[in-house]
């Protein structure tokens, strides 16, 4: 283990950077959503206040819960997200891969859902159980399309698996510029919408149906870390898409502006989707992903294999 890994992990682009950016982007989300609804929205540092406030609240553990699992689930999920963001960010900003490749990232992201389910379901709450069931169904729904989306850049870069390798393969042409790339990119945005459980796919934590589902029994610091890791996904997933399809960031001169624009574009598209759709039913989501998004992604893959 080299010492700079600690820097990558804890400062940039890991914990500190992703955490801060996530909290800020979370505010952007709330602010833009509010503008959509003719409202002013919260102050800019609202999510920081929320986070620190939750740290000071009581942690309630239900009498039926497995306390150790209940408490450690959010922290494991959080660590996993930090790790993945550090891996993606390092490849993006420094061109260095460590830890794992695309397949590892994909499987690590599954761990988040696992933790949501384990943490939620061990409380014995009936809503959490339903939420856990929905979470895993949603994972099934989007996973198939997500695998296809991830395979497209792998195929296009000549079967390179490592993150920096895929980035390097885009030196002579961004993948998003090709037909297969753009289709996969669009499906990818839908997939991360579902992975982040944003409306219309906020089925597992549907507040008006099952009262925040798996997160229902959480309070205090564990809840704070759930929220934080969820907000950090606002960084992780768009970065992953940019890395895979949009050539990463070029942080020099005008490149910085481009980088911010790229990132904001994805975020704003996601916010728009979020605000112009009602929550769908779980079977509708399954149908949508399996019968529409997956064939579309398959077409992208076919195009990619054919070299388009």
């Amino acid at each position: 283990m080299r010492p700079e890994y600690l820097f990558y992990l804890l400062v940039f682009p890991g914990l500190l950077f992703t955490g801060t950016l996530g909290l800020v982007v979370g505010c952007v989300d709330r602010k833009v959503s509010a503008r959509f609804q003719f409202r002013v929205g919260p102050p800019f540092l609202q999510n920081f206040n929320d986070f620190f406030k939750l740290l000071g609240k009581e942690t309630i553990i239900t009498k039926e819960a497995v306390a150790s699992l209940f408490i450690s689930a959010p922290f494991i999920a959080f660590s996993m997200i930090v790790l993945v963001s550090a891996m993606i960010g390092t490849a993006m900003f420094f061109g260095v891969s460590f830890g794992g490749d695309v397949i590892v990232v994909m499987y690590l992201l599954m761990l988040y859902s696992v933790m949501v389910i384990l943490g939620g379901a061990c409380t014995g709450n009936v809503y959490s159980s339903i939420g856990a069931g929905r979470e895993i169904k949603l994972l099934l729904a989007d996973e198939l399309a997500f695998i296809l989306v991830l395979l497209v850049p792998i195929v296009k870069s000549g079967y390179v698996l490592s993150l920096d390798g895929i980035l390097a393969a885009q030196q002579d042409g961004l993948f998003i510029g090709s037909a297969s790339g753009i289709i996969a990119f669009i499906v990818g945005i839908l997939c991360i919408q579902a992975k982040m459980t944003l409306t219309p796919f906020d089925i597992p934590e549907a507040e008006t149906e099952i009262v925040d589902g798996p997160f229902m029994e959480y309070s205090g610091p564990p809840l704070a870390f759930w929220k934080l890791s969820h907000l950090m996904m606002w960084v992780t997933f768009p970065f992953l898409l940019i890395l895979l399809f949009w050539g990463g960031f070029n942080l020099s001169g005008l490149g910085i502006l481009w980088a911010i624009l790229k990132y904001l574009l994805i975020v704003v598209v996601m916010i728009i989707i979020k605000n112009t759709n009602p929550r769908v039913r779980i079977d509708t989501a399954l149908n949508f992903f399996w019968k529409y998004a997956t064939p579309l992604a398959l077409i992208a893959l076919i195009l990619a294999v054919l070299g388009a």
């Binding site: 509010a34 609804q37 929205g41 919260p42 309630i60 925040d212 997160f215 809840l223």
Partner: peptide, 22 residues
């Protein structure tokens, strides 16, 4: 919570679970 009064300006949010409430 709606546009005219918009309590979110003060950081106030309506939550569904009592565990999240202040």
């Amino acid at each position: 919570l709606t546009p005219r009064y918009d309590l979110e300006r003060f950081g106030i949010k309506l939550v569904g679970s009592i565990r999240h409430a202040d």
